[in-house]
Design a binder for these strands. Structure first.
Lengths: 149, 149
DNA sequence: TTAATTCCTACCTATTGACTCGGCTTTCTA
DNA sequence: TAGAAAGCCGAGTCAATAGGTAGGAATTAA
């Protein structure tokens, strides 16, 4: 029941963009450096976020990435589900599942998995990037660098 | 963020014991057969549950397993945490973690992970095996077999 | 034109999940 | 008291996945 680095790194990168990318694009390598993430690996993660419409890119010199929407319109849930897939604890209660379980009507544990899924979604859908930016600014009122996310 | 088969199979086995093991011990192979789980694999899982004090065993002919406590005193959380470890989404908020994260005071995402962990625990700690037995009996009022857990 | 940057695809490697197996020990029962 | 029926234990296997590397093509500002 662990989140992978995809979700954690991706959230770090998005928060980095929310903090440092208010005007103009940010190069991937500067995000990777600040957040101590492999640049090559982050490249793959941010491609997923781009295809999901959460970040915008600009190619070429002075290019980079920025948030596609204001940070108060991007939730932690958007980011985590984009990178991790459904946060359901078992496949049978994934939001986007194709095949309905034949035993669903008789299954007594399905309700447990549903409750877990919904409680996780409730948490992550009620925290926006702006909330995290605010927390960050409060914690670092006098600091200059952001290492700790 | 998926539960492994350890947690799912273990819960199935415990529910099987709660339903079929009211008087006397149940042989592992009969649980495995009813629940469609590899007997050899289940052996390893039930060993963990035994060491955690959730089931009791009896060796030798006519031996087997039974719940160590009444089903209303065993929660889904007890079972899942025994088999999966902490249900925390990241290591830094595991209940039993040894090393305190040095950046904990400054970390803005830690509060997210804590909320997720606590919301999962709240769900699973408030469902007992007896609750599941009741659900099962209601769903199967007229059925004889239990395949679907 | 060139340097900086994203985009895309393929590849690698260690770890883990999910079993499988063999042999030993214990205990009931005939 | 022998033998069958169970649990106990440790090792081995195999495929999938996580996490990361790498190379080169395309794009764009200066």
């Amino acid at each position: 029941m662990k989140l992978s680095t995809k979700g954690r790194y991706g959230l770090k990168a998005m928060l980095d963009l929310a903090i440092h990318g208010q005007n103009g694009h940010i190069a991937l390598n500067s995000i990777a450096e600040r957040q101590h993430i492999s640049e090559y690996y982050l490249e793959q993660l941010i491609a997923i976020l781009r295809k999901a419409g959460l970040v915008e890119s600009m190619r070429g010199a002075q290019g980079g990435y920025m948030l596609a929407k204001p940070p108060q319109e991007i939730t932690v849930g958007d980011i985590l589900r984009t990178l991790e897939g459904s946060l359901a604890p078992v496949d049978c209660v994934m939001e986007d599942k194709k095949i309905e379980c034949l035993q669903a009507d008789y299954c007594v544990t399905k309700s447990i998995w549903l409750k877990i899924r919904d409680s996780i979604n409730k948490v992550v859908d009620n925290i926006t990037l702006q909330d995290l930016v605010d927390d960050y600014k409060q914690a670092y009122a006098q600091a200059t660098d952001m290492y700790y996310i």
